[in-house]
Simulated scan of single mutants.
Amino acid sequence: MTLPPAAARRQLKHRRQFDVQVFVRDDGLWEVDATLVDTKTRDAQLAGERRAAGMPIHDMLIRLVVDTSLNVVDAGARTRWMPYAGHCDDHGQAYRSLIGLNLARGFRKGLQERVGGVLGCTHITELAQVLPTAVIQAFAGEVIDTRGDGGVKPFQLDRCHALRSDGEVVRLHYPRWHRPAGAFHDTPRSPE
Rank of each mutant, 00 (worst) to 15 (best):
G100H: 05
D149M: 09
A104R: 15
G100K: 05
S190G: 13
P83A: 06
W81V: 05
C160Y: 10
A8Q: 15
R51F: 02
A128N: 01
G150R: 12
M82T: 11
I144L: 12
F139A: 05
L36E: 14
S69C: 09
A75C: 06
L46K: 10
W177A: 02
G117W: 08
G141N: 03
Q11G: 04
R179A: 12
W81Q: 14
W177F: 11
R16Q: 14
D166E: 06
D27C: 07
R42V: 12
R159M: 05
Q156G: 13
I62N: 01
G117E: 10
D67S: 06
A8S: 14
D26R: 15
A138R: 12
W81F: 10
G110D: 03
D43F: 07
E126S: 10
H178D: 00
A7N: 13
D74R: 15
A85M: 08
F139Q: 05
V65M: 07
P188C: 03
W30P: 04
P4V: 03
R108L: 12
P191Q: 11
Y95M: 11
L157M: 06
L163S: 10
G150Y: 02
L12Y: 00
L64Y: 07
V143K: 01
Y84I: 08
D149L: 13
R164W: 08
A77L: 04
G110Y: 03
V152N: 08
V152M: 06
V37C: 11
L163I: 03
L46C: 10
E192H: 14
M60D: 03
Q93W: 04
F139H: 15
V115G: 01
G76I: 02
L157K: 04
D90M: 12
F139S: 06
G120P: 10
I57M: 13
L29E: 08
R10T: 11
G182N: 08
C121T: 03
A85H: 13
C88H: 05
V73E: 09
P56L: 03
T122V: 11
L172E: 10
V66M: 09
P56D: 02
